[in-house]
Amino acid sequence: MAAILTNDNIAPAVFRMVVVAPEVARSRRAGQFVIVRPGPGGERIPLTIADADPERGTITLIYQVVGKTTAVMSLMDPGAEIADVAGPLGQPTHVERFGRVACVGGGIGIAPLYPIAQAMKAAGNDVTAVLGARTRDLLILEPEMRAVVDRVVVVTDDGSYGAKGFVTDALRGLIDSGERPDLVVAIGPTIMMKMVSLLTKEAGVRTLVSLNTIMVDGTGMCGGCRVTVGGQVKFVCVDGPEFDGHQVDFDEMMKRLRTYRRQEAESYEAFRTRHRCRLMERNAEARG
């Protein structure tokens, strides 16, 4: 059981939850994740660890409401308990002094990017964060990022904040500027990571992506998270979650992510019908 200290709405349908998990807080490193099961009958879902406080024994999880499990989490009050938090799982990010590092985050992907940007900076890199969102309201962790990296470039799809465009536009600008990054770390929607990887492959810039696939156990036992990387089958939970973006078969991954789309919609819809008012009150209605 992991007690919830706070569970705040930080953007439409996006929440920041701080839970007590001393062992995870003590041993986690940038890039790792936990498996969360909110309660009895609940699903096990992977969530990246956005931050941790080893002294207080807490970890911060940032999640977007996309289905029933995340909707259930959005309605949990401080003082309540998450039934199961297992981790840290996955391989930590390989952090060293690369030189110039561009951390490219889209939407909710900015959350797992934050500890990586922090670690890259601490290792002596010059770090630029490229943060993208559909619209201004959905941009998360901008001030936090500004506090840890050398410079932040913001783009929104609709131009409501920062430059209008996609993260790839800003990244191309960076590559062309002569301040060419030695490493790109890209985390966000699969299509964004694919487009970033295509761009950097052409430009010859090494790129790491962090994959968020479907998982059950998170310890290498089920293989549900398998992806093809450089023609080899890899398990995201134990071999990843980070891989060379130039080697990942993103098209296959995007298809696999749709496996339970119908079941998930059915399950979420049933929950939403019963809890619509509370979800609206909490600003937790999934979009699209």
Partner: peptide, 8 residues
Amino acid sequence: FPHASDTP
């Protein structure tokens, strides 16, 4: 699923 279990 989808009654007593959320795992599809």
